[in-house]
Amino acid sequence: MKLFRKQYSQPGTQPGVIHDEKKGELTLSLFDFNASQCVEKLNATAEQCATFLDSNNETWVHVQGDPDKDTFTQLAKDFGIHELFIEDVSNLGQRPKIDIQEEQIFMILTLPVQTELGVSLQQISLFLMKNTVVSFCGGKFNPFTTINNRLKLPTSRLRKRHIDFLFYSLIDTVIDWGFPVLEQYADRIDATEELLLENHDKDILQKIHLLRREVLLLRRQIWPHREMLNTLLRDDTSELIESDTKLFLRDCYDHSISILELTETYHEMANGLMELYMSVVSLKLNDVMRVLTIIATLFIPPTFVVGIYGMNFSRDAGPLNMPELYSPYGYLGVWAVMIFMIVGMLLFFKKHKWI
């Protein structure tokens, strides 16, 4: 799993400091719409987007990419975003959270995305203001292409409702991205379990450990989503979210609970795989030890017999000293006794189902 690591400032650093480490590409997309029309501007500038913020239409500005420090500062100034919020947006690795103010709602979400290299976690930042939504997404992957297409349809519900419904739609999209990722984990768990029952070498142990770690980290990142949505539903101080939209947010809240329950289930299943691996290895070791014990047990009586006849007592010292040594069938007799003892023990083990 590819994770972002939170960047920490030097102790005593002034609040609002933006780490100037990212100098990637930046794309601004603008949608200014109402029930009858939709203006779309791709590759727009911050100045062009700022001119639409005071319009009577609903406006959505999506920032895609990794701006540098100066660009972030300028965006915050043009969009009316507080420097503390833009610090959280810029410095990736923030814990999902929500900040509700009278004129602005700020949310940070974690977006899990399945890639060729595994699961990647992206930070999504959303700002809801009067008639305006501003979203930030790092990297090149845009998770809101479906929302873009829906806005272009004249019959879309997004065009007919207030901007808070678009805000809900963005949140719901981020939450729902967890379902296909969890399906991938379900397939990986099933495949690992089948492979474990067939083969239990150290490579399987490494796969199980990696799977447990990824599910645990995913659970930690998406766990706050439920509390955030619950806070947003219970808030009565802000008028930015209409009561009708809160009905849809409740459905989004249910989705977050479903994802959390699935994550918990898969985490327990991953732990179960580790226990199954230890059980399989233990059973294999027990089988090996049982075979070795049986072999050792079978040779203990013959070893005792051979040890007796290996004692060097002279026959000339007395008639009781190894009388079998002078018998023409003594050697064969000893072999017959040892074979009889081995066969007898095998039959005894078989009767008691030890072998």
Results as ranks from 00 to 15, higher is better:
residue 261 E to K: 05
residue 116 E to L: 12
residue 68 D to P: 03
residue 94 Q to N: 08
residue 342 I to M: 11
residue 129 M to P: 00
residue 87 E to K: 03
residue 34 N to Y: 04
residue 82 H to Q: 15
residue 32 D to L: 13
residue 176 D to C: 02
residue 148 N to M: 14
residue 1 M to F: 13
residue 283 L to Y: 12
residue 111 L to D: 09
residue 295 I to T: 15
residue 120 S to D: 14
residue 90 S to V: 10
residue 116 E to N: 09
residue 143 P to Q: 05
residue 311 M to T: 08
residue 79 F to R: 03
residue 123 Q to V: 04
residue 149 N to H: 10
residue 163 I to N: 04
residue 249 L to P: 00
residue 149 N to Q: 14
residue 138 G to Y: 09
residue 269 M to V: 03
residue 243 S to Q: 14
residue 275 E to V: 06
residue 51 T to R: 14
residue 146 T to W: 12
residue 40 E to P: 01
residue 285 L to R: 06
residue 242 E to P: 00
residue 345 M to C: 11
residue 110 T to P: 00
residue 206 Q to A: 12
residue 238 S to Q: 04
residue 207 K to Y: 09
residue 214 E to G: 09
residue 67 P to F: 06
residue 293 T to F: 04
residue 25 E to S: 15
residue 317 A to C: 06
residue 327 S to V: 09
residue 29 S to P: 00
residue 183 E to F: 08
residue 176 D to A: 01
residue 276 L to Q: 03
residue 17 V to Y: 15
residue 215 V to Y: 01
residue 62 H to N: 06
residue 78 D to I: 03
residue 3 L to S: 07
residue 28 L to G: 12
residue 333 G to C: 08
residue 319 P to M: 13
residue 273 L to T: 01
residue 345 M to P: 04
residue 93 G to W: 14
residue 21 E to T: 13
residue 281 V to L: 14
residue 89 V to Y: 00
residue 120 S to Y: 12
residue 184 Q to S: 14
residue 85 F to A: 11
residue 13 T to K: 13
residue 104 Q to Y: 06
residue 142 N to F: 05
residue 296 A to Q: 05
residue 228 M to H: 10
residue 80 G to Q: 07
residue 130 K to C: 02
residue 124 I to T: 00
residue 280 V to W: 04
residue 141 F to H: 15
residue 46 A to E: 10
residue 255 H to F: 09
residue 15 P to C: 03
residue 170 L to C: 09
residue 132 T to N: 11
residue 231 T to A: 12
residue 212 R to P: 11
residue 303 T to C: 05
residue 85 F to D: 15
residue 131 N to L: 07
residue 176 D to P: 07
residue 113 V to S: 14
residue 280 V to M: 02
residue 312 N to Q: 00
residue 52 F to G: 05
residue 19 H to L: 06
residue 208 I to S: 01
residue 291 V to K: 04
residue 240 L to M: 07
residue 114 Q to N: 14
residue 102 E to G: 14
residue 200 H to I: 01
residue 318 G to T: 12
residue 26 L to M: 03
residue 348 F to Q: 03
residue 221 Q to K: 14
residue 148 N to D: 11
residue 63 V to K: 10
residue 214 E to V: 04
residue 290 R to V: 00
residue 211 L to T: 00
residue 339 I to M: 10
residue 61 V to N: 10
residue 277 Y to M: 05
residue 37 Q to G: 08
residue 97 K to P: 07
residue 259 I to M: 03
residue 160 K to R: 12
residue 55 S to F: 06
residue 147 I to M: 04
residue 67 P to D: 03
residue 264 E to G: 08
residue 100 I to Q: 02
residue 32 D to F: 10
residue 159 R to T: 08
residue 288 V to N: 06
residue 188 R to M: 11
residue 100 I to H: 04
residue 224 P to L: 07
residue 182 L to N: 03
